[in-house]
Design a protein around this nucleic acid. Structure first.
Length: 578
DNA sequence: GCCGTTTTCGGCCCGACTGTTTTCAGTCG
């Protein structure tokens, strides 16, 4: 198995944390952290770059030392430097960093002074009264640590929230805040606004000339379970989510003249902000959440556009703000004009009552028309997916006749005869060519035999794509966010084959799938592969999920041209013909 | 450890809140 970018990133992240605990130069720590993030978000596979002897130091944040360490990890699967480091600073200390209120300095102190190296020894030291004797550790800190140990033991892994889930949880809180008369503007910033597939917390920005009232109402809201902090312009709470862990919400109030600067600041990402502020510094300017300043003079702040303008940049869409090259693209005038929901002309994966959908084909068609579409594809399951009532050849033939019979009820709207046909273990398709050739478009996907080896799974998909009726690979990696890992295969090879054979891959817009993800989408774009964005709807309401797919496409830098189903059916038809 | 439109050395983004101390370090985002 090749070394993945995440493996390298994980090692550098760990080194950064350990150096931090050790009390090393904080900028050195930051170098490891920055490199970890950069590698994790790169669309190219680092292992392959090493194999091809590409110069890694060309990557921002990677210098001579780190590029050598990367090569060592790729070659040996490990890093000698990390191994030696753990002799001085044990790995188990990383568990202590998960305790809110404990950072690297305090963890370092616990280790140095009391030889505490994990949750158990920390708890013991607290019980024996040793911790509160340490300088910087008072009664409140010790109490906080105790409740944090409880929390971590009861739910060991930090759960992030699906974008769609967070949206629901926070909506009633926003309604409550909107009722306050002095509140002017209210918007969610942070990773939510950048449309990341999951969010760790919610950042709410409010403009208002009466911050105290807003803060008071915020911390006393009925669903608040914990008040983490409560200041005059900034407060944080935990909000009941109906799940094992609560959702943290940070609220920030700024005056209206700072709206743009604050929105930019709290939208992030952190890396993007750092890059923008660096540019400001080089121009003798300072950017903070209140505005852009030269000495004490405020030059901009009311809008984000004005903030960017001060540092010589055009407006950058929130989905691009990850420091993945958007600053350079902005400077060179190469920012992509991102695909929008309005660009979409049709949905290419939907289900009806014929298999496991909740609405009839006609109901789905009416809903698709309401979405402003010109066409949609009926892609019920094939026979292999028996639990979902998958169709055999005979039933599919009947469905084709049925769709032909109702088509005339619709003017200027096309119901595409299609299917989501299973890719069997040997790479053949679940229905014969004789029926597939009767369809307008064929979507293929994997539901079974998910555990094949990397090589076999890759081979299976490539073989399926050899079938001339194969048009689209649906939910290509098979992952479910937070609950099911992708199956193992060579995605880049599959994408390359798709380009050569004239196939397409899907961005499945279901909030739990988002498959392909943003990084994959960017990779496809760079390879010249066009993608489809479809909802996999099992009801009329699901069609609206298209926006989640669009968000990920935008995060992957896709334009209207990069997406197949932004085109009218006549053009799609030409492009898919093999 | 990285980086360079003043630089190959000397910088490295910025501010609010908390708790522990009485002016600030640590944490967090």
């Amino acid at each position: 198995m090749p070394i993945h970018n995440q493996d390298i990133a994980g090692i550098f992240d760990t080194v950064g944390d350990l150096l931090d605990i050790k009390g090393e130069n904080p900028f050195r720590v930051r170098s490891y952290k920055n490199a970890a993030r950069a590698i994790e978000e790169m669309s190219q596979n680092v292992t392959e770059m090493v194999d091809k002897h590409e110069d890694l130091t060309k990557q921002p944040g990677i210098g001579k030392d780190l590029s050598q360490k990367i090569e060592e990890i790729v070659r040996t699967g490990r890093l000698e430097y990390l191994k030696n480091l753990t002799k001085e600073v044990p790995l188990s200390l990383l568990d202590l960093l998960k305790i809110e209120t404990l950072g690297p300095k305090k963890v370092g102190k616990l280790y140095q002074e009391l030889s505490i190296r994990d949750l158990d020894s920390l708890e013991k030291a607290i019980d024996e009264g040793e911790v509160k004797e340490l300088e910087g550790f008072g009664e409140k800190t010790v109490e906080k640590i105790k409740t944090e140990i409880e929390r971590i033991r009861s739910s060991p892994q930090e759960r992030r929230f699906l974008l769609a889930a967070a949206e629901k949880i926070v909506s009633s809180l926003l309604e409550e805040l909107e009722k306050i008369p002095s509140v002017d503007r209210i918007i969610i910033a942070g990773s939510y606004r950048r449309r990341k597939e999951t969010v760790g917390d919610i950042d709410v920005l409010v403009t208002c000339d009466d911050p105290e009232t807003v803060m008071e109402r915020f911390v006393s809201y009925e669903d608040v379970t914990t008040v983490i902090s409560h200041g005059s312009t900034k407060s944080s709470v935990k909000l009941r989510s109906g799940r094992e862990s609560d959702l943290q919400v940070d609220l920030r109030v700024v005056p209206d003249e700072s709206y743009g600067a604050a929105l930019h600041y709290f939208t992030g990402s952190k890396a993007h902000n750092v890059a923008v502020r660096k540019r400001a510094v080089s121009k003798g300017l300072k950017i903070n959440e209140y505005g852009v300043f030269r000495d004490d003079e405020m030059l901009a702040g009311k809008t984000e556009e004005a903030v960017y303008e001060q540092v010589g940049l055009p407006y950058i869409e929130p989905e691009l703000r990850e420091d993945r090259g958007e600053i350079e693209a902005g400077l060179n005038g190469n920012l992509p004009e991102l695909v929008t929901c309005e660009d979409m002309k049709g949905d290419l994966q939907t289900h009806s009552t014929e298999s496991d959908g909740k609405n009839s084909i006609e109901e789905m068609a009416r809903a698709a028309i309401d979405m402003g579409y010109e066409y949609f594809a009926v892609t019920d399951h094939s026979q292999r997916v028996s639990v979902a009532g998958g169709m055999d050849e005979k039933r599919l033939a009947k469905q084709i006749d049925y769709i032909n019979s109702i088509q005339e009820k619709f003017s200027d709207f096309t119901i595409l005869k299609s299917i989501e046909v299973d890719i069997l273990e040997d790479g053949t398709l679940d229905l014969p060519d004789s029926i597939l050739k009767e369809l307008d478009i064929v979507t293929c996907s994997i539901h079974y035999n998910r555990n094949l080896s990397y090589e076999k799974q890759t081979e299976r998909i490539l073989r399926a794509m050899d079938n001339r009726y194969f048009n689209i690979l649906a939910h290509p990696t098979g992952r479910l966010i937070g609950s099911r890992e992708p199956y193992q295969f060579d995605l880049e090879k599959v994408m390359q084959a798709a380009v050569e054979k004239g196939c397409f891959l899907e961005i499945n817009a279901h909030p739990e799938r988002l498959d392909l993800n943003d990084t994959h989408a960017r990779m496809a774009k760079e390879m010249g592969l066009k993608l489809t964005i479809s909802t996999d709807s099992h009801s009329t309401a699901n069609l609206k999920n298209i926006r989640y797919g669009i968000s990920q496409a935008r995060r992957g830098w896709l334009t209207r041209d990069d997406v197949l189903n932004t085109r009218p059916w006549s053009e799609v038809k030409k492009l898919i013909s093999r």
